[in-house]
Write a protein that binds this DNA or RNA. Structure first.
Lengths: 237, 237
DNA sequence: TCGCCAGAGTGAACACCGTTAACAGTTAAC
DNA sequence: GTTAACTGTTAACGGTGTTCACTCTGGCGA
């Protein structure tokens, strides 16, 4: 018990600030969540927020981390919700869940996945909480794909089909994918790449010149990339 | 000859302004290209720019249109550069060219493709010059795919494999694709979706946790999606 | 219980931003 | 040659993130 009364008050205020920031984000997009606007939202002066966050960017980073955690929790709940579902069903579930969350929270999704990610391998790398939360999020998909492969290895390209340079980079990621062979890692990354690209395009409006409702297209694509992982069609509604 | 001296001066100034805006864009990202900063760049006061652009947003829109045109010109030059190349080669050429341009001009690419596109079907639709330039850009890919199909129709999903809702939306886009059948339209959109998503992910850094150099992965994916259009592997270097 | 100090909050100020208004000089047109 | 349009200016308004100096108060150790 090291939580003094003031610590609890402080934590509550931090939560209030992030809640206000999110409200502004939802209502007016990323550009609307300003330091002064947040302060105004809870009847404080702008400099007061500097007691809780070092800068405006820090506030946004904390909000991003929170949103990643919320999204991750939602997907985990979806994954563990139906005990009847097999691993393939679970993958379809969370893929659709990711799309649903993105469409239901476009502003939040834009904040998480729309902004360019600074290269952490560069010399100025500092692992923000947002990076860590993003890794927890990505791990949900990674673990599921790895489990699927472990349970029923899907056919994958042979190593000599991949080309030496690609092969070397895939091998380096093999242990991250629980020791899957390079060809299987390639298919896993293809799955993620296509799913991510598809959802980003839909949410960011890059698809509504072609589809007024991209849901059917999404399902078809999901089935396509699921097939590559040896999964059956889920529910062709 | 209705170009008075002042008209030419004015056009030159407009070009200067956009050049300065682009310089700032390249040097410091989208957030660095401000009205005052642009004015400072060419020794003007900020309100002077309002003689040439109605607002800051108008300036950005004009810059976007210019960049689309530049990109389109580059791809067209690539397409028409090698008279020996067949249509398939040309498609690989401009796909790689798009990636190269994106990697060489990440800030410009982010401005063109990173920002959410407002739905033009909504009631507040106003066709900006940027929209028109984007359509000219997209037409380069569309025409090439349509020509490829016309020359050598690639195998495509039958209509009953697509599902009724997806089929209806694809049919509506058939005439835009020079009367291609729905299944072929589906494959064309898949091509574009995957290419676009892939490049966005690489440029926006969403891929460098997996690949330090995504070039080999890009080539492999490009071959994959080219195969679906009945094309041979270009140059497996 | 007293004293003290860290924590929380304030208003003023700085430098920037997009934008508007009122004004002056130049240039083209009638 | 007069006039009107065009191009530019400075001043100002309201907005932003941020820092500084200041006050007040709650919780801790002596």
């Amino acid at each position: 018990m090291e939580l003094t009364r003031r610590d609890r008050q402080r934590a509550a205020t931090v939560a209030e600030i992030k809640a206000a920031a999110r409200k502004l984000l939802v209502e007016g997009g990323a550009s609307s969540v300003g330091l002064r606007a947040v302060a105004r939202e809870l009847g404080l002066s702008a400099p007061a927020l500097y007691r809780y966050f070092g800068s405006h960017e820090d506030l946004i980073s904390a909000l991003i981390a929170d949103l990643y955690d919320e999204l991750t929790d939602a997907l985990v709940a979806l994954r563990d919700g139906d005990p009847e579902a097999d691993l393939g069903d679970k993958l379809f579930l969370i893929a659709g869940g990711l799309r649903d969350w993105a469409l239901a929270h476009p502003a939040e999704f834009g904040l998480l996945f729309g902004a360019p990610v600074p290269n952490p391998d560069a010399d100025d790398h500092e692992l923000t909480p947002g990076h860590l939360a993003a890794m927890r999020f990505a791990a949900v998909f990674k673990e599921l794909v790895a489990q699927i492969y472990q349970q029923q290895p899907f056919p994958h390209p042979a190593e000599d089909e991949l080309g030496p340079e690609l092969l070397a980079q895939l091998r380096r990621k093999s242990e991250f994918f629980d020791g899957m062979p390079a060809g299987a890692v390639y298919l896993s990354l293809t799955y993620w790449t296509r799913l991510y690209g598809l959802i980003c395009m839909e949410v960011f409006g890059q698809l509504h010149w072609a589809f007024e409702d991209a849901g059917a297209y999404f399902q078809a694509q999901l089935f396509e990339i699921g097939e590559a992982l040896g999964l059956d069609c889920p529910v062709p509604d």
